[in-house]
Design a protein around this nucleic acid. Structure first.
Lengths: 115, 115
DNA sequence: TTAATAGTTCAAATATTATTGTAATATTGA
DNA sequence: TCAATATTACAATAATATTTGAACTATTAA
């Protein structure tokens, strides 16, 4: 991942309303939620919600699919993985404690309490 | 970590110049670098560098200490750890693949190629 | 086709950020 | 103390981002 994409994604998450939306979608899983459900959940107007969803999509963090008259949004797994990889890739260069409990591994597993 | 602090930190990193500064400091380790060295390294004027350093410090991602006539900046380890923890804390709730190779563990170690 | 629902796009207003030059502060060394 | 160096603070400007209502598009159901 290059720095421009990383900064774009971080800026997208750097807005409280969007961060709230993103975390909501993380918990929802692959089926995601319709735009209106998201707007209700984060207490935003339809226009504001649409704007923020577009920003998150532009940043590669979520994806949209039309489902009848609804448009569903869900987390874009690869985009999220790339961003976390970018943030942690320097940690093993002399400063592993930076990444705290969050470290790079080759195999994906959930360990510990998993909070 | 609460959502406001997380959004503040993410917004701080969501600027290319600041992300460059932050990554530079990650690699430098605890001794950090003086403001002028940082400005030179990222090719910014002293005023712009000072502005961005202040933003990163306000977000709790770096810290400053005076060293004679210099002011040295270094990564704030706890701030970085908190942010990564916040970003990954939902991954094990039904969506572990989101965190990619980046997962929560109780013990801090470096595994694999180490990016 | 018409009415209703779900979302988006557009445009105007506002608010927040970033950039730059100049002035001010802190420290060092003569 | 004075001159030089490192950096920040201030102020003006420029650039972006956010919010809002109104208009528009797509889909469904009658």
């Amino acid at each position: 991942m290059e720095i421009k994409s990383a900064a774009l994604a971080l800026a997208a998450l750097g807005n409280e309303q969007r961060l709230r939306i993103f975390r909501l979608l993380v918990v929802q899983g692959p089926s995601g939620l319709a735009a209106g459900e998201i707007a209700d959940a984060v207490d935003a107007g339809p226009t504001a919600a649409s704007f923020h969803l577009k920003e998150l999509e532009r940043a590669g963090l979520i994806r949209s699919t039309r489902d009848g008259r609804y448009i569903r949004y869900a987390v874009h797994v690869e985009g999220m993985r790339r961003l976390l990889g970018y943030l942690t890739e320097d940690c093993c260069k002399g400063h592993p404690e930076l990444c705290g409990g969050t470290i790079k591994r080759t195999k994906v597993t959930c360990v510990g309490k998993g909070g």
